[in-house]
Nucleic acid binder design. Structure first.
Lengths: 225, 225
DNA sequence: AAAGGTATGTTGGAATTCCAACAAAGGAGA
DNA sequence: TCTCCTTTGTTGGAATTCCAACATACCTTT
């Protein structure tokens, strides 16, 4: 278990927790480490949603089947990544998704109730763990909300401007660098890359923004005042 | 404070907590009840994001200003509703939004750290409170994810089908009733109401679905097998 | 039953987006 | 430096969506 300390320390769930604390904690939580052969399920839709998973090695793909059984990939989780935490914390009885090992993988399962309830020994790190869990889910909440705000705009131009103004506000400056290339930005906004590129050009021509690569500047609108 | 028991008991944060427990808890948490005149701010952007708010009476509007100062309404919170919880839990130092009382309102503020940390008296209801808080945010997470899954589809038809298949799966039946009228559904999916109505008609004509009002049935696709 | 109002369905042209194909601009490696 | 490959920008026609206007259905009130 100690072999995975480095990976675990990168997991948001264990932020600010040292190795000795972590080993004690894992014992206390009765965390279970399981190896899963490539292509095998980590869990299946309908399984009880009791556990959060941490990928220790390999890669795990979370997939969802619609009513007809058409499968779509939701996420791919790398070592250090957490998964299924929202389902467990939301109080779902069963999982609405499946997870499959893309490579031979090692996964740490933690009982969500055990994380929340705290142990009889009043282990002092439970509150930290809960804090981390809550913080992670709340942050994801904010990123999802931001994305929806962009995607809700009607036109590509509006989606872009909402995104860029949000970045400017977040980074506290009219000049900033975005963490996406054009294709990733288009995917994020839910539009066509080429159409988006064209729109960026138009925004530049119209004097609304300036940009070069992943660098942008939003220009003060001429109020005419 | 007891006057608000009925409202508080409807708040997701206090689910499963009885009145005597609640009064003890509020004392323990040092909850502060404040009256806010109509039109006055409940809090302003930039204020420390330490508190979660519960509307006890009136109505509170959460608004966001973009980089240029254009204001947009994010939510309107009614009595029993929780707000600012994601910001406080995500660990933001300052609030990225403002809140304004639409009517003369009463708001209960709770220190988020105090909720999470637990009190020295080992008040037995803290864990329930944390559980409720986490569960609420996790559930919101799932609803946001669902919405994004629909909105990410390219065409109105695909958005509709993803939504309907998701409903069928959630409700465990090919027949179900949706909790939206046409306008609300269009807003949810981010499309035009009239275009969506037309698309529903087409889907019916194509034998993909059957519907009447808020009742829908998704029909098994003819696999040709 | 009539009238008014609201929600829903339908339609046609304007506007926008998608799509595919290609051009241009870098970057990495030989 | 040259070549190959990836990323980004540009363009035109096809497809889709928006928008506004109107028709129809349903519900409530009188």
């Amino acid at each position: 278990m100690e072999a995975y300390f480095e990976i675990l320390s990168q997991c948001s769930l264990f932020a600010g927790i040292t190795q000795p604390e972590m080993t004690e904690m894992l014992r206390c939580l009765e965390g279970k480490i399981t190896g899963i052969p490539k292509g095998n399920p980590v869990f299946l839709e309908g399984d009880p949603a009791r556990f959060v998973g941490v990928v220790l090695s390999g890669a795990v793909q979370v997939v969802r089947d619609d009513y007809y059984g058409n499968r779509s990939v939701l996420t791919v989780v790398s070592p250090g990544g957490l998964f299924a935490e929202a389902f467990a914390c939301a109080g779902l009885e069963t999982l609405p998704v499946s997870a499959i090992a893309l490579q031979p993988s090692t996964v740490l399962f933690l009982d969500c109730q055990r994380i929340l309830t705290g142990c009889s020994q009043a282990c002092p790190f439970h509150s930290r763990l809960v804090h981390n869990l809550l913080q992670g889910i709340a942050q994801k909440n904010l990123t999802l909300t931001r994305k929806i705000r962009c995607m809700s705009q009607k036109t590509t131009r509006e989606k872009l401007m909402v995104f860029l103004l949000d970045q400017a506000k977040q980074q506290g400056s009219a000049e900033f660098v975005i963490p996406y290339d054009r294709q990733a930005l288009a995917d994020y906004l839910g539009v066509e890359r080429s159409a988006m590129s064209a729109e960026i050009s138009k925004l530049k021509k119209d004097g609304q923004i300036d940009s070069s690569g992943s660098w942008f500047r939003v220009l003060s609108p001429d109020t005419g005042a």
